Computed example of a mutant assay.
Amino acid sequence: MANANQAGLGSIQACREKKILAIGSNMDQNPVAPDTVLVSVIKSVPVLIFHVVDLIYNNKFEPKFYNLGVKEGAIYLSPWHGFENKVPQEVKDRIARIMKDLEEGKLDIRQYK
């Protein structure tokens, strides 16, 4: 996985050449390499923008850092795009649990550096 938008396409190409799976970043990158991109971590810019606009509209905007993520729907995973049967169920369950814990605020990724 390379978190570099279009610049990360090189990592997907390298994975394709090595015949290993890749994880897309920021947008669903499966269409770039359907046999290589297993899943993508998507950053929803519309959700982020709507959040700020809503704060401004409701006169609640403050000049500070807003930490938006899974809980707010700003970050989520793409579909498996046909890889459902290639990923062990226990792995999919673990990923689903982590996403649920993030959504419920039970897991704070800021603690990992």
Rank of each mutant, 00 (worst) to 15 (best):
K113N: 15
A7Q: 14
Q6L: 10
E103I: 04
P88I: 09
E103F: 08
D108Q: 04
L107K: 11
Y57M: 11
F83E: 04
G105M: 14
A96M: 00
K113R: 15
E90S: 03
R94W: 02
F83A: 12
E62M: 09
V91T: 11
N26V: 10
D35N: 12
Q6T: 15
E104V: 04
G8Q: 00
G73I: 02
K86F: 10
P88K: 12
K18R: 05
G73P: 01
D108M: 01
Y76T: 09
M1F: 12
E72Q: 11
P88Y: 06
E90N: 12
Y76S: 05
V39K: 06
K19N: 13
E72V: 12
G82V: 04
P63R: 05
D108K: 01
L48H: 15
I56R: 04
G82S: 05
A33P: 03
D28V: 08
N85A: 14
I109M: 14
S40P: 08
G24F: 05
E84T: 04
R110N: 15
I56M: 11
Q89N: 07
R16W: 01
D101Q: 04
N58W: 06
A4P: 06
A74K: 05
K71V: 00
V47Q: 03
D108G: 03
I75T: 02
V87R: 14
I98E: 03
E62T: 15
D28I: 13
K19W: 01
A33Y: 06
N85I: 13
N26Y: 10
A96L: 02
L68G: 01
K86Q: 15
N3D: 10
N30T: 08
E90L: 01
R97A: 11
V41I: 05
E104R: 14
L38Y: 07
N30C: 02
V37A: 13
A2S: 15
F83L: 01
V45K: 04
C15N: 02
V39S: 07
G24L: 03
I23M: 11
R94M: 10
G82I: 11
P46N: 02
G73R: 08
D93N: 13
K19G: 03
I23T: 13
Y76F: 14
F65C: 02
P34D: 07
G10F: 09
K71E: 13
K64A: 12
A7M: 11
K60F: 03
V91P: 05
L68P: 13
W80T: 03
G105Q: 05
L77T: 10
I75F: 13
Y112N: 04
H81N: 09
D28P: 08
V37C: 10
E62F: 07
S44N: 10
I95N: 00
W80C: 01
A7T: 03
L9D: 08
S40A: 13
V39E: 12
I42H: 00
I56Y: 09
A22V: 03
N26F: 13
N85P: 12
H81I: 00
L55T: 11
K106E: 09
E72C: 08
G10K: 13
S11V: 06
A7G: 14
S78H: 08
K64M: 05
V32L: 06
